[in-house]
Design a protein around this nucleic acid. Structure first.
Lengths: 176, 176
DNA sequence: ATTTGCATGTAATCTGTTACATGATTCA
DNA sequence: TGAATCATGTAACAGATTACATGCAAAT
């Protein structure tokens, strides 16, 4: 399905950047719904260049460090928009090792099961705290046609998801 | 991390079954947090047999159809419990093509964006309906030490997740 | 008889992670 | 001058999907 391809094209649609910059985006803005390591990004950029979806210019930073600044081509833009307009097929519910373990938790002794739930709750609470911190950058709801609006909606979704997760874990603990 | 291995061992811990039965389990009970196709299950069972985690007996169904009925060994049980007790490391937030598209949705015209959200809401609502139907099999909260209790907790989590998802999508539509 | 489901497997491909590898720049 | 970060790449492996491939059993 080449989702990484479109994630990259989408980022380059807004502004040109290097593979390293893209990598950082996957670690921040997109992190709540997509990610990729540099070892996947660089080969994909090479492929997209061969396919004519992106092109790059070499910039020299300092005296000799070569940076490849990638930008999206017209062909890339068309392909990206086509993907964006295409109806998204049903996605499988995401895999979760934690839920798998909880499913089997009757084989655990009661204190281990409780500890497992408490530990997970701690993790999710700190994740939620971080998300709420990120939300503070939006002092008001962004303009509907700005790129920030999509950012705002998915961040809201991430927060709601985490809040429900924490609520669920607390409910599980109550039932023990 | 061999998660499939432990998902299979966990199922065999409760009762012996064939690869085909396991496949069906991944399509029903476990579907909300793990899945696997038969093309992944059969090779894994072969591997687990070589590793001494499981063993099988051949049963003849009808006149000649051979079924391999797999059961977990003592070694398999120990390995499974060790995995279950081990602290789960932080899981990455799950990838979502839909959220990725929503993130980029400012490049869509307003009616396409709205249609995208409505379509997703429909999908999630029907998924939620199905989950609530599944929950009906629990006329009361299962006994804490029964395998059904874990099942109950994760199903509750899935329902809460879907409810929040629908709520989020409705909120997005309101903001347009 | 034909279709659906039971039952088992392999091959090719795609996606993603970890590890290997190198070198420049910036800041303390 | 040493550490952190910037910057780019490849190789090996792990995990998962799609397609290929076969044959029996049960129900209609």
């Amino acid at each position: 399905m080449r989702t990484l391809k479109y994630a990259i094209l989408g980022l380059l649609y807004e502004k040109s950047m290097t593979g390293y910059d893209l990598m950082k985006e996957f670690g921040s803005a997109l992190n709540e719904f997509w990610s990729a390591k540099h070892s996947q990004i660089y080969p994909e950029l090479k492929k997209l260049t061969n396919e004519g979806m992106v092109r790059y210019e070499i910039e020299i930073s300092g005296t000799s460090l070569e940076k490849k600044c990638y930008s999206i081509t017209e062909e890339g833009k068309m392909d990206f928009l086509k993907w964006l307009q295409k109806e998204t097929e049903v996605e499988e519910t995401p895999k979760s090792i934690f839920r798998l373990k909880l499913f089997y938790s009757s084989y655990l002794n009661p204190s281990d099961r409780e500890e497992m739930l408490r530990h997970q709750l701690e993790l999710e609470e700190s994740r939620l705290k971080q998300l709420k911190k990120n939300q503070k950058k939006f002092t008001e709801i962004p303009e509907k046609n700005s790129p920030e609006f999509g950012d705002y909606l998915v961040l809201m979704g991430a927060i709601m998801r985490e809040e429900t997760n924490c609520e669920w874990l607390r409910k599980c603990l109550e039932l023990l």
